[in-house]
């Protein structure tokens, strides 16, 4: 659907590139969780994809020339003195929706964002959560091939958030390409099938979330004194490497058998470890690990 080849972008008067030689491709059906600390280049990437700015160098190639991009920006981009219905109708006109498609889209967003109770209420008088829903609804009202969600659920209560995430899933099920940024990493974990991590304008990680999950069982162990005899030899014998941490080591496991052997060794020791943690790291842990702890 879209291919970025060594795309860089530098803001006017800036000294370094906000995006540095970014190469990646977006495919139909991708639900991409876009992660990165502040200043990583997420906003710049969204600006490039939405056509607000053009690459300083490199190529951004859409497979179809008429690919449409829908936006759900972080700020509340609607007319606060118009009602929910008036805002939706206005943007339906702007998106040039007509006839049955217009009715269908309007109905879809009203249901997906659960807006039917307050259609006549002016946006300015809505609570923050409702305003966020309206903002979301206007974004997905536009029939598009790619949707960009920028912190779309900030300030929305848990129930409403789940409803909005369901709407995102519906779009994904319809084969749309979605890019989603959020500070709620559980949200991304829940909906994304691919994770991109940006840092200082560079792509640190681009992997399917399934791969990140299945490969990431980890054992963190910390002995009160020295590691018992035979521990390091066992780790080496199993073909594993122990990554040293401040007070222990972190061992990435790939099979359950490896865990069973290490577990057997530990349980037969006279001195038990001070710390023993085994599990699959959350996306948040992975993210912190990849970015070196930067938020």
């Amino acid at each position: 659907m879209l291919k970025l080849s060594a795309v860089s972008y530098r803001y006017p008067a800036a000294e370094i590139d906000a995006l540095q030689a970014l190469t990646l491709s977006l495919n139909a059906g991708d639900i991409i969780g876009l992660l990165g600390p502040n200043g990583a280049g997420k906003t710049t990437l969204f600006s490039l994809l939405s056509g607000l700015v053009k690459p300083t160098s490199g190529q951004l190639t859409w497979q179809k020339t008429d690919t449409r991009v829908g936006l759900v920006p972080q700020h509340l981009a609607f007319y606060s003195q118009l009602s929910i219905a008036e805002n939706l109708v206005f943007f339906a006109d702007i998106y040039q929706l007509k006839g049955a498609q217009r009715q269908q889209q309007l109905q879809m967003v009203i249901e997906a964002c659960n807006l039917s109770d307050r259609l006549k209420q002016r946006a300015a008088t809505l609570s923050g959560g409702w305003q966020r829903r309206l903002n979301f609804a206007i974004g997905i009202l536009q029939p598009a091939d790619v949707y960009l969600f920028d912190e779309a659920t900030v300030g929305v209560d848990a129930q409403s958030r789940q409803q909005l995430l369901n709407a995102v899933k519906q779009l994904a099920a319809a084969g749309k390409t979605l890019l989603y940024t959020s500070h709620y990493l559980q949200e991304i974990e829940q909906i994304a099938n691919r994770i991109l991590v940006l840092q200082q304008g560079q792509l640190l990680l681009d992997a399917p979330i399934s791969q990140l999950s299945s490969d990431s069982w980890q054992l963190m162990v910390q002995w009160s004194q020295q590691a018992p005899l035979g521990w390091l030899e066992l780790v080496a014998k199993l073909g594993l490497t122990a990554e040293p941490l401040a007070q222990g080591s972190l061992i990435s496991l790939t099979t359950t058998a490896q865990w069973q052997q290490l577990n057997l060794f530990i349980t037969t020791q006279m001195v038990q470890p001070k710390l023993l943690r085994y599990g699959r790291p959350s996306l948040e842990q992975l993210y912190l690990h990849v970015t070196g702890g930067q938020l």
Binding site: S50, G51, L52, V69, L71, P73, H75, L76, A77, F78, Y79, S80, F91, I94, I138
Partner: peptide, 9 residues
């Protein structure tokens, strides 16, 4: 408000 961004896009 960012509405102009929406209209432009």
């Amino acid at each position: 408000s960012g509405t102009l961004l929406r209209l432009k896009s």
